[in-house]
Write a protein that binds this DNA or RNA. Structure first.
Lengths: 192, 192
DNA sequence: GTCTATAGAAAGATAGAC
DNA sequence: GTCTATCTTTCTATAGAC
């Protein structure tokens, strides 16, 4: 038994990490299994010992983004809800995020990519989205639980970052990100 | 001269119409030139008499969406700015739009698709975006010209529809569309 | 200008050695 | 489990007839 089961798990995790990063940055069709495995430090043939096919790992990779939600929450230690949300808006709706100098959110980077794929990928995307939305909703208010503003806020965050990547003019990207940040904060205050 | 120049123009327009529709609905990589030409009622070989390559027609097709902006404006005849905007929000952030029962907006359907493509496509996308944004901004206010809310509103519209297509749960899609519509209207009132 | 036929490249998936 | 070699399909783009 030359390969331990922990070794297999470690390989699988490496491949998944590479998949999340590459798929998020380039989209499903622009990443080949060759590239994926090379990025993970392995070769093409080994892929199929871990995943059924390309479609399969795409959904798995998106699902792997769920763990970043935990990280987000963990950073909320000493801060108030309001502070945490403002910090999130600043980080998410930033040039660093758009220009991939920070960990990228598949919700914003893959919004229309996922729409053209099968159920498993969309199911995974939905799970990640609900996690983000619920996270924001929980910080948004304590009493007005019937309010649905969190959906509009997440749509604006995702739309703003997606636009930031699609647009070709730095000045317009600035305006979009600024406006989304300001409006998100405004909605925060006004929904209190 | 068996083929008139009007005939060529007509063919080109047919191909462009097909391209806008198919690319918008399926994305760049999921549409082949074969499918494109078949949809336009022609065959593969004729394509290159009209366009340099696939990348070329993608940018052209997006640019062709500019003319729909004119149509939008034309429908603004008897209505007030406020009415026109509310009508736009209802139409844009609707299930019919998300489910492709109405003409689809490439801004929402191709947001992340375009981000992975070259400059010409992103330039075309930027032009269409600025058109929509400017249209909304012109209806939004008469005096507060320094206000930038229109960027956040368009980001929310595009993000909301993109999410509507990506998500796999009808109930969540409902919530996203509802919330975006309500919030857009709220921003309308509050920015007066 | 439009057609059919085809060249050439890319990529998903499998087979078999180690 | 991971590797290299290869089968197979798909698709962009070109060539040449009409």
């Amino acid at each position: 038994m030359p390969y331990s089961s922990e070794h297999k798990q470690k390989s699988r995790d490496k491949i998944l990490d590479s998949a999340l990063k590459l798929f998020t940055h380039h989209g499903y069709d622009n990443v080949s299994i060759d590239q994926l495995m090379e990025h993970a430090g392995l070769t093409r043939g080994a892929f199929y010992a871990h995943f059924k096919n390309k479609s399969d790992i795409y959904a798995e990779a998106i699902l792997a983004a769920l763990k970043h939600g935990e990280t987000l929450l963990a950073q909320a230690d000493g801060t108030s809800n309001q502070q945490w949300l403002e910090e999130l808006f600043l980080t998410y709706l930033s040039h660093e995020h758009v220009n991939r100098q920070a960990p990228s959110c598949p919700l914003a980077f893959l919004a229309t990519d996922v729409a053209n794929r099968e159920a498993p990928a969309r199911k995974a995307y939905t799970a990640v989205y609900k996690k983000l939305n619920q996270l924001i909703k929980s910080k948004l208010m304590k009493d007005k639980l019937e309010d649905n503003t969190s959906f509009a806020i997440t749509a604006m965050m995702i739309g703003g970052v997606a636009l930031g990547r699609a647009l070709n003019e730095t000045e317009t990207v600035d305006q979009v990100l600024d406006s989304c940040r300001q409006t998100a904060m405004r909605l925060l205050v006004e929904s209190e």
